[in-house]
C-alpha cells in the first residue's frame, strides 16, 4: 500500500492525495453505474463480445474503424486486380472484422470471392470450388450480424443461385428475405421464380396467390400486374380448372 502511495506521489501529476477510501468509493460508483448501463440500458455490449470477439480487437483504433475497413477494402480490390486470391480473401476478412455492421463488405466480398475470383481461378491456379465455398462461408459469418436484414438474404440467394447453382437453397433464401420487414418486392417474386425453375409450380402458385392481395396497386415497384400475369401463366401451365384459379376479391 505504501509503495502504491509512493508511486502515486512520484508521478506528481495529481492534485489530490491518494486515499483508499475515496478510490473504493469511485470503484463502487463506477461498478454500480456501469452494471446498470451495460447490463440494463445497453445489454448488447456483452452480447457483441460473445458474437464476434476477434474483430473487437480493432476497437483499439476507436472511431476510425470504418476508415480502416475502407482501407482494407481498397487493398482487397488491389489484390483482386493482381489476381491474388489469398491476399484478396485476407483483406476482405480484415474489412469485415473492422466493420461487421456494414453489409456492404460482407456481400461485395462474398461476391468477389465466389463469382469474380472463381471465374478466373483456373488461370491463377486457384480452385474455383474452394473460392466459391470461401465466398459462401464469408456470407455465413455475416449471418450473426445481418440475419434480420432482408438484403442479406437477397445477397445470399443470389450467390446460391449464381455461384452454387442451387435453386432450392436460393428459393429458400428469397423466401426468408421476402418475409422480413423492409424487404424489396422483388424478393418475393424471385422466390416464386426459383420455385418455377425447379418445377415446383404448385408451391409457386400458392405463394403468388398469397402474395398478390398484399401488393399495393399504387406502388409501381410492387408490380402487382406482373404478379397477376405470373399467377395466370402458372395456372395455364398447371391447367387448373376455373374454380381453382386465383381471383381477386373484386372478381368474386
Amino acid at each position: 500500500m505504501a509503495q502504491f502511495s509512493l508511486a502515486w506521489e512520484s508521478c506528481n501529476c495529481a492534485a489530490v492525495r491518494f486515499d483508499w477510501k475515496h478510490a473504493l468509493r469511485v470503484l463502487v460508483v463506477l461498478a454500480g453505474g456501469g452494471i446498470l448501463a451495460n447490463a440494463v440500458v445497453l445489454p448488447d455490449v456483452t452480447a457483441r463480445a460473445v458474437r464476434a470477439p476477434a474483430g473487437l480487437w480493432w476497437d483499439w483504433i476507436g472511431g476510425l474503424r470504418p476508415l480502416g475497413a475502407n482501407l482494407a477494402w481498397l487493398q482487397s480490390q488491389e489484390a483482386w486486380g493482381r489476381g491474388d486470391a489469398a491476399q484478396t480473401a485476407a483483406f476482405l476478412r480484415l474489412a469485415v472484422e473492422l466493420q461487421p455492421e456494414s453489409l456492404y463488405f460482407w456481400s461485395n466480398g462474398a461476391r468477389l470471392l465466389a463469382l469474380d475470383l472463381a471465374a478466373v481461378a483456373d488461370a491463377s491456379g486457384d480452385s474455383p470450388d474452394a473460392l466459391r465455398r470461401a465466398g459462401m462461408a464469408l456470407l455465413e459469418q455475416a449471418r450473426t450480424w445481418h440475419e434480420d436484414n432482408p438484403y442479406y438474404w437477397v445477397e445470399r440467394a443470389g450467390l446460391e443461385w449464381q455461384a452454387l447453382a442451387d435453386g432450392g437453397l436460393a428459393a429458400e433464401s428469397y423466401r426468408r428475405a421476402a418475409l422480413l420487414p423492409g424487404a424489396p418486392y422483388y424478393a418475393a417474386r424471385l422466390h416464386a421464380l426459383m420455385l418455377v425453375r425447379q418445377g415446383r409450380l404448385n408451391e409457386a402458385h400458392a405463394w403468388l396467390c398469397w402474395l398478390h392481395p398484399q401488393l399495393p396497386a399504387a406502388d409501381p415497384a410492387a408490380q402487382a400486374d406482373l404478379v397477376r400475369k405470373r399467377i395466370h401463366g402458372i395456372e395455364q401451365q398447371l391447367e387448373l380448372p376455373a374454380e381453382q384459379r386465383y381471383r381477386q376479391q373484386d372478381e368474386l
Partner: peptide, 8 residues
C-alpha cells in the same frame, strides 16, 4: 492541508 500525496 494535506501536503504531497502521502498527505503530510
Amino acid at each position: 492541508y494535506s501536503v504531497g500525496l502521502r498527505g503530510v
